[in-house]
Write a protein that binds this DNA or RNA. Sequence first.
DNA 1: GCCAACGTTGGC
DNA 2: GCCAACGTTGGC
Length: 154
Amino acid sequence: MNYWLMKSEPKSFSIADLQSRPKKTEHWDGVRNYQARNFMRAMKKGDLAFFYHSSCALPGVYGIIEIARAAYPDHSARDPENHHYDPKSTPERPLWDMVDVRFQREFKRPVTLTAIKTQATLKSMRLVQRGSRLSVMPVTAQEWRAILQLEKKS
DNA sequence: GCCAACGTTGGC
DNA sequence: GCCAACGTTGGC
């Protein structure tokens, strides 16, 4: 089983939005970065991910979601009306993928980016590396446990 | 293949 | 709104 972190702007899609969906499940579309896409392709059903809120008052990890379906073509890439439309993606050769995620739980209090940055054991986390802008990234088992520890402390 | 210009991300 | 950092595009 692998661990991940997935970013979303809560204005567009928050962990509360996911919880309110039928079966608490939604597809994670709109990823248009090759490295992030490749990470999604490496995801397996049953993997766990942190739901991270970005570009908001309090950026941080807000809860835990589960990968409910492995990567499959992101149809939003072929919709000219969609903000993430990409004409390079065709039915024969879909360029972009998405996964389905299911709500698992929301933290009582978020583990903020600030808290993560000040935690010595999380200094090497990809999230806080200089210039790291990936919206989907792997998390090690140690980092996963450290974040859960921070949740308890908060 | 180089690289300038441009677009995007995301914290602050 | 600013801006640093990075990715992508496209002319040459």
